[in-house]
Structure formats: structure tokens, C-alpha cells
Amino acid sequence: EEKRQVKQVAKEKLLEQSPNSKVQVRRVQKQGNTIRVELELRTNGKKENYTVEVERQGNTWTVKRITRT
């Protein structure tokens, strides 16, 4: 359940930055209360990979860091 929520948060964050792209989740890793989500962003056939680190704060998820990989 929490992985599902985190995927959603990570996707939304990337789509905010580039709204007309397609996002696909590649991998989800958990480390303590930080969850790392690896995503693939496609814009006009151009692929970019991103890693989004999401942290739990109380009962909400906040995006800590977005890295292009």
C-alpha cells in the first residue's frame, strides 16, 4: 500500500515538471523511511531516467530529491 502511494507521489511530481510526458515506474526500493523510486520519463520519444527519493513525514509523503540518472 505505501509503495503504491509513493509511486503515485513520484509520478505526479515528475509530471508537474513536464506535463505532456509519459512516466513509467521501473523500480521501488525501501531504505528506512525513505523510498527510492526509479522512473522512466518519455517526452516525444526521448527517454530520460530519474530517481525520486520520497520520505515519510507524519502521514504524508514528501519528495526529498529528484536525480536524473
Results as ranks from 00 to 15, higher is better:
Glu1Trp: 06
Glu1Ile: 06
Glu2Pro: 03
Glu2Thr: 08
Glu2Trp: 15
Glu2Asn: 04
Glu2Cys: 09
Glu2Ile: 12
Lys3His: 12
Lys3Cys: 15
Lys3Thr: 15
Lys3Ile: 15
Arg4Ile: 02
Arg4Ala: 11
Arg4Gly: 06
Arg4Leu: 09
Arg4Lys: 14
Gln5Thr: 11
Gln5Ile: 14
Gln5Ser: 09
Gln5Tyr: 10
Gln5Ala: 13
Gln5Phe: 11
Gln5Met: 10
Val6Gln: 03
Val6Leu: 06
Val6Gly: 07
Lys7His: 06
Lys7Ala: 15
Lys7Leu: 15
Lys7Glu: 15
Lys7Met: 15
Gln8Glu: 13
Gln8Phe: 06
Gln8Leu: 08
Gln8Arg: 07
Gln8Met: 08
Gln8Ala: 08
Gln8Asn: 07
Gln8Val: 05
Val9Pro: 01
Val9Asp: 02
Val9Ser: 02
Val9Asn: 01
Ala10Ile: 14
Ala10Met: 02
Lys11Val: 15
Lys11Phe: 05
Lys11Tyr: 05
Lys11Ala: 12
Lys11Asp: 01
Glu12Gly: 03
Glu12Asp: 14
Glu12Tyr: 04
Glu12His: 05
Glu12Ile: 06
Lys13Gly: 07
Lys13Asp: 01
Lys13Trp: 06
Leu14His: 00
Leu14Glu: 01
Leu14Thr: 02
Leu14Gln: 01
Leu14Ser: 02
Leu14Ile: 10
Leu15Phe: 02
Leu15Met: 07
Leu15Glu: 04
Leu15Thr: 02
Leu15Asn: 03
Leu15Tyr: 03
Glu16Trp: 02
Glu16Gly: 04
Glu16His: 04
Glu16Val: 03
Glu16Phe: 03
Glu16Asn: 04
Gln17Ser: 05
Gln17His: 09
Gln17Asp: 06
Gln17Pro: 01
Gln17Phe: 13
Gln17Cys: 09
Gln17Trp: 04
Ser18Asn: 15
Ser18Met: 14
Ser18Cys: 12
Ser18Gly: 02
Ser18Pro: 01
Pro19Trp: 01
Pro19Ala: 04
Pro19Gln: 02
Asn20Trp: 02
Asn20Thr: 07
Asn20Val: 02
Ser21Asp: 02
Ser21Tyr: 02
Ser21His: 03
Ser21Ala: 11
Ser21Gly: 13
Lys22Met: 09
Lys22Ile: 11
Lys22His: 07
Lys22Tyr: 09
Lys22Ser: 11
Lys22Pro: 02
Lys22Thr: 14
Val23Ser: 02
Val23Met: 03
Val23Leu: 04
Val23His: 01
Val23Gln: 01
Val23Glu: 00
Val23Arg: 00
Val23Asp: 00
Gln24Phe: 14
Gln24Ala: 13
Gln24Ile: 13
Val25Ala: 04
Val25Cys: 05
Val25Glu: 01
Val25Met: 04
Val25Arg: 01
Arg26Asn: 09
Arg26Trp: 07
Arg26Ala: 04
Arg26Thr: 11
Arg26Glu: 04
Arg27Leu: 06
Arg27Cys: 06
Arg27Gly: 11
Arg27Gln: 07
Val28Trp: 07
Val28Met: 14
Val28Ile: 12
Val28Pro: 01
Val28Gln: 04
Gln29Cys: 10
Lys30Asn: 13
Lys30Gly: 14
Lys30Leu: 12
Lys30Ser: 15
Lys30Met: 15
Lys30Val: 15
Gln31Arg: 13
Gln31Asp: 12
Gln31Ala: 11
Gln31Tyr: 14
Gln31Thr: 14
Gly32Asp: 08
Gly32Phe: 06
Gly32Thr: 04
Gly32Trp: 06
Gly32Ser: 05
Asn33Tyr: 05
Asn33Cys: 05
Asn33Glu: 12
Asn33Lys: 10
Asn33Leu: 09
Thr34Asp: 05
Thr34Ala: 12
Thr34Glu: 05
Thr34Lys: 06
Ile35His: 15
Ile35Gln: 05
Ile35Lys: 01
Ile35Asn: 04
Ile35Ser: 10
Ile35Ala: 13
Arg36Asn: 13
Arg36His: 14
Arg36Phe: 15
Arg36Trp: 13
Val37Cys: 04
Val37His: 00
Val37Met: 03
Val37Ser: 00
Val37Ala: 03
Val37Asp: 00
Glu38Ala: 08
Glu38Cys: 07
Glu38Lys: 12
Glu38Leu: 12
Leu39Phe: 06
Leu39Gly: 03
Leu39His: 00
Glu40Asp: 05
Glu40Ile: 12
Glu40Pro: 00
Leu41Thr: 08
Leu41Ala: 13
Leu41Trp: 02
Leu41Lys: 04
Leu41Val: 11
Leu41Ile: 05
Leu41Gly: 03
Leu41Gln: 05
Leu41Asn: 01
Arg42Gln: 07
Arg42Thr: 15
Arg42His: 10
Arg42Leu: 12
Arg42Glu: 14
Thr43Arg: 04
Thr43Cys: 04
Asn44Tyr: 09
Asn44Phe: 07
Asn44His: 12
Gly45Ala: 09
Gly45Arg: 07
Lys46Leu: 12
Lys46Gln: 12
Lys46Phe: 09
Lys46Ala: 10
Lys46Val: 10
Lys47Arg: 12
Lys47Gln: 08
Lys47Gly: 04
Lys47Leu: 10
Lys47Trp: 06
Lys47Asp: 05
Lys47Thr: 11
Lys47Phe: 11
Lys47Ala: 07
Glu48Pro: 00
Glu48Asn: 03
Glu48Ser: 08
Asn49Lys: 10
Asn49Arg: 14
Asn49Thr: 10
Asn49Met: 14
Asn49His: 11
Asn49Phe: 14
Asn49Val: 10
Tyr50Ile: 04
Tyr50Pro: 00
Tyr50Glu: 00
Tyr50Asn: 00
Tyr50Arg: 01
Tyr50Asp: 00
Tyr50Met: 03
Tyr50Ser: 01
Tyr50Leu: 03
Tyr50Thr: 01
Thr51Arg: 09
Thr51His: 06
Thr51Gly: 04
Thr51Asn: 04
Val52Thr: 01
Val52Pro: 00
Val52His: 00
Val52Ile: 05
Val52Tyr: 01
Glu53Asn: 04
Glu53Tyr: 14
Glu53Cys: 05
Val54Ile: 08
Val54Tyr: 02
Glu55Ile: 13
Glu55Ser: 10
Glu55Met: 11
Glu55Phe: 06
Glu55Ala: 08
Glu55Pro: 00
Arg56His: 08
Arg56Ala: 07
Arg56Ile: 04
Arg56Glu: 05
Gln57Glu: 14
Gly58Met: 08
Gly58Leu: 09
Gly58Cys: 05
Gly58Phe: 11
Gly58Val: 06
Gly58Tyr: 06
Asn59Arg: 05
Asn59Asp: 13
Asn59His: 09
Thr60Gly: 15
Thr60Ser: 13
Thr60Met: 12
Thr60Phe: 11
Trp61Ile: 05
Trp61Cys: 02
Trp61Asn: 01
Trp61His: 04
Trp61Ala: 01
Thr62Ala: 14
Thr62Glu: 13
Thr62Asn: 11
Thr62Val: 14
Thr62Ser: 13
Val63Thr: 03
Val63Trp: 01
Val63Asp: 00
Val63Ala: 06
Val63Ile: 09
Val63Ser: 02
Val63Cys: 04
Lys64Thr: 15
Lys64Tyr: 08
Lys64Ala: 13
Lys64Asn: 10
Arg65Cys: 07
Arg65Gly: 14
Arg65Glu: 13
Arg65Leu: 11
Ile66Trp: 03
Ile66Gln: 02
Ile66Gly: 01
Ile66Glu: 01
Ile66Thr: 04
Ile66Phe: 04
Ile66Met: 08
Thr67Ala: 10
Thr67His: 09
Thr67Gln: 10
Thr67Met: 10
Thr67Leu: 13
Arg68Thr: 06
Arg68Glu: 10
Arg68Asn: 15
Thr69Phe: 10
Thr69Trp: 12
Thr69Ser: 09
Thr69Leu: 10
Thr69Gln: 11
Thr69Gly: 12
